[in-house]
């Protein structure tokens, strides 16, 4: 039995769905961020697997860029979480509804 790229893609889909469920169901901003990381990693995995299937390095280059974006996002996002926490003493996104219509 050979591990085809399709297996990796399926695994990536599963991890992505788990990450998305964390995004939709958890209220803790930190956990939501971690879920985002999960989804990004799932995407990265599918990039690499697809790149292997197609025989190109583009997928791995794309992973590089995704990582950069993820790093920037984590840095800014965590800074925002800390700033909010200093002011509100909470990490629950449901309590941050100042912009609701």
């Amino acid at each position: 039995m050979i591990v085809t790229p399709g297996w990796y893609l399926a695994l990536a889909a599963v991890i992505f769905v788990i990450g998305a469920s964390g995004m939709l169901l958890r209220r803790n901003a930190l956990v939501m961020f971690m879920s985002v990381e999960l989804m990004l990693n799932a995407a990265n995995l599918s990039f690499v697997a697809a790149g292997r299937a197609l025989g190109v390095l583009d997928g791995q280059a794309a992973v590089f860029f995704v990582m950069v974006v993820a790093a920037a996002e984590v840095v800014v996002g965590l800074a925002i979480i800390v700033a909010v926490f200093r002011r509100r003493a909470t990490a629950s996104v449901d309590e941050l509804s100042g912009l609701k219509g």
């Binding site: 995004m23 939709l24 449901d94 509804s97 912009l99 609701k100 219509g101």
Partner: peptide, 8 residues
């Protein structure tokens, strides 16, 4: 009303 303020 669509803007409920709940990110989720």
């Amino acid at each position: 009303p669509l803007q409920t303020g709940f990110v989720r």
